[in-house]
């Protein structure tokens, strides 16, 4: 497990956390907001206006959370490029060093690479 691979892992983990966290908060936001809208929907005089407000609200909420996810992916992609640049620079500094130094080959250690495989069941 090289340092660059660990950095990539950390980047991916943070990106996943922000992505899934934003989606989870969006679900709670929508569920919470739907309660007063559901009540207003049953009040005949203001129901049509409330439906319009709800539509605007839902579109705005979807846009905001989607923007968070898109910016998150953009930051993730930028970090990935930065890691790539640093990795190439360190390889250029030490041309004799292997690009992905691993302590044991796959043949010598049957467990190397195991972590990349999904578990057989979950």
């Amino acid at each position: 497990m090289t340092t660059a691979n660990r950095l990539r892992g950390l980047r991916a983990l943070i990106e996943d956390a922000v992505d899934q966290g934003a989606s989870a908060v969006e679900r709670v936001h929508r569920a919470t907001a739907s309660r007063p809208f559901d009540v207003l929907d049953h009040v005949a005089p203001i129901a049509p206006a409330a439906r319009g407000v709800r539509l605007v609200h839902d579109v705005t909420v979807a846009g905001v959370y989607e923007a968070i996810r898109q910016i998150n992916h953009l930051v993730g992609a930028t970090l990935e490029m930065a890691i790539e640049v640093v990795e190439r620079a360190s390889e250029d500094d030490d041309p004799g060093a292997p690009a992905r130094p691993e302590p044991a080959s796959d043949e010598a250690n049957p467990m190397v690479g195991e972590a990349a495989q999904p578990p057989t069941a979950s």
């Binding site: 497990m1 090289t2 691979n5 660990r6 950095l7 990539r8 892992g9 950390l10 991916a12 983990l13 044991a104 250690n109 467990m111 190397v112 690479g113 195991e114 972590a115 990349a116």
Partner: peptide, 8 residues
């Protein structure tokens, strides 16, 4: 993910 520990 590269943070996963491999058995060794």
């Amino acid at each position: 993910n590269g943070l996963a520990t491999t058995m060794a």
